[in-house]
Design a binder for these strands. Structure first.
Lengths: 311, 311
DNA sequence: CTTTAGTCTGCAACCGATTGCACGCTGGGC
DNA sequence: GCCCAGCGTGCAATCGGTTGCAGACTAAAG
């Protein structure tokens, strides 16, 4: 059915080896032969079967991307960036969404491992031991998470949290609530740590309001805790959650930002579409995705290189 | 490095064939042998290499999903549904985003063709001839598009548009503007057709306001045409566009829905998060995705079956 | 006790591409 | 005219599974 090297070989009057070389390693074949092979190849519409090549070379030309929830607009942005960079290097991308189930992550890594050259774990929730196990199956790059021996791309959380605190302080706030994301979220913990040191430095009171789903609904649920705590300003784990809070607050008659300041993190496009727009921390989603791919391709090209940590 | 059938075979004291059969076709091997093989296999952490199997059986266990723009929240919803259904049948999903470049679609189909058993084209913009070409490379199922001999999943657009018109008429509107999506969008054309017959049936004037990007920005741009046309109500190609319109209208001081009614299509989650919420047409995104997978798997199981059209 | 049917397993070929090795040919140097 | 270097190409093995075919062995039937 499909056109194979042998079909091309026959049609061009050469051996399969020559076809393979003409396409993959043009330098070693006679220019005249090469040109003929190439012409025949695309006359026949030949496309090499990546899978077969993968068996021999160990390079499938695919990368995997695992993330918690595509319904959170933060992740599609990363996916798009990853894809762009991957396609530019002739890689295809497997995307898998765990639906915020941390236990699903390792299984996905395993089932992807044989089909991809490497995996990007975006905001993984799995415990460190599993992280190590995962990176034993296949080269791994982390996004939004740091773990010693594994390459990663993160944002400068302390600086971001300092900026948030400075902003709220400049508005006159002396107490800040934090609505955390999932317990298993590394970035949520980091944000709390960042807020803690930034608030200590400025003498502001930080109130930990507990963990909530990193979703619109999660934000809505958080509101009663926020109100009960009496804080005048609150930082949410992410924009989606912040937007949920603003929505529920409005229903209670609390005006944002007059009665209560709400700050999100991620700067998803949606945040700018609201009236009034949500105050949020810009996160370079494109860069995260691009850099992750670069780190992964770098690691694939030179497997001996040490882990790198970017951004 | 990785564990292969032969490793398992050696450890279990059988041949590679037996291992393969024990795992893929348990009925034909002796229960005792089978049990031993299975135990050894997962003691060693054996995972068959899908790609190798694919070479022989022509079944890779992967499906491809191509769509115009993950940044439009409509598509992540479909992706999630597709993934769920696919994973349940032990299929992995390749996702590719064309960034609203119709010319990129066929290329993606080609580069995916050898690695997947079938492809779901969600809201494809390519011309019909290319659609036929694509379905020659690999089994294809269409979502949000209809083309005779290719299986597809669509919504009942005429009914949806009738409901929209009825709703606007019941609010007292006698003229409706339509802000179309991309020229190459089949569903945008269908929606126009649907609106046309629904408005003719009710004696309402329909104004075609031209094509715009199916994005927030596209909606903002559309506003000047909307205002210039003087219509009292407007239907946007999709929610994102409608939301952009509402945003730009608000900046001009036009109050929605008092001064102008705006209706979207898709019912993305975001539409319910706004204040006031956007009026929109519910689209069963989950069902679209699920059904598409079902149709594809059905076609794979029985390649002789004719095309089916669902929803 | 032989024949026959049936079950279980292994051998070997195969899928499509890649690659080490060796052979044949050409051309320059002596 | 002969030798050696070097280029270009083909043969055959390989990757990790799968599968047709045939042989070994068991058990039931004659």
């Amino acid at each position: 059915m499909a056109v194979t090297v042998r079909d091309v070989a026959k049609a061009a009057g050469v051996s399969a080896s020559t076809v393979s070389r003409a396409l993959a390693n043009p330098a070693v074949v006679d220019p005249a032969t090469r040109e003929r092979v190439v012409r025949v190849a695309d006359a026949l519409g030949y496309r090499p079967n990546r899978a077969a090549r993968g068996l021999i070379t160990g390079r499938t030309g695919n990368i995997g991307l695992i993330l918690p929830d595509l319904a959170n607009p933060f992740f599609p942005s990363v996916v798009k960036a990853v894809q762009q960079r991957a396609h530019a290097s002739d890689y295809q991308v497997f995307v898998a969404d765990t639906d915020e189930v941390p236990q699903a992550e390792l299984g996905l890594v395993r089932s992807l491992a044989k089909q991809v050259d490497g995996v990007i774990l975006c905001s993984p929730r799995m415990p460190p031991a599993e992280l190590r196990e995962a990176s034993g199956y296949v080269p791994v790059v982390l996004v939004n998470r740091h773990a010693g021996p594994i390459s990663s791309v993160t944002i400068d959380t302390p600086a971001a949290m300092r900026a948030v605190v400075d902003h709220l302080v400049s508005l006159g706030h002396r107490e800040i609530g934090y609505v955390a994301g999932p317990r298993s979220s590394w970035s949520s913990r980091q944000r709390l740590i960042g807020l803690r040191s930034a608030t200590e430095a400025t003498g502001v009171r930080l109130v930990d309001l507990g963990h909530f789903a990193p979703t619109f609904e999660g934000g809505r649920h958080a509101v009663q805790c926020v109100v009960a705590s009496g804080v005048t300003s609150v930082v949410a784990y992410n924009d989606l959650c912040a937007i949920g809070m603003v929505s529920a607050l409005r229903e209670r008659g609390t005006v944002v930002p007059d009665d209560l300041s709400v700050v999100g993190v991620d700067d998803i496009e949606m945040s700018a579409m609201l009236h009034p727009a949500l105050t949020t921390v810009r996160v370079p989603k494109q860069d995260l995705g691009r850099t992750a791919v670069d780190l992964l391709l770098h690691a694939l090209a030179d497997p001996t290189s040490r882990a790198r940590h970017a951004s």
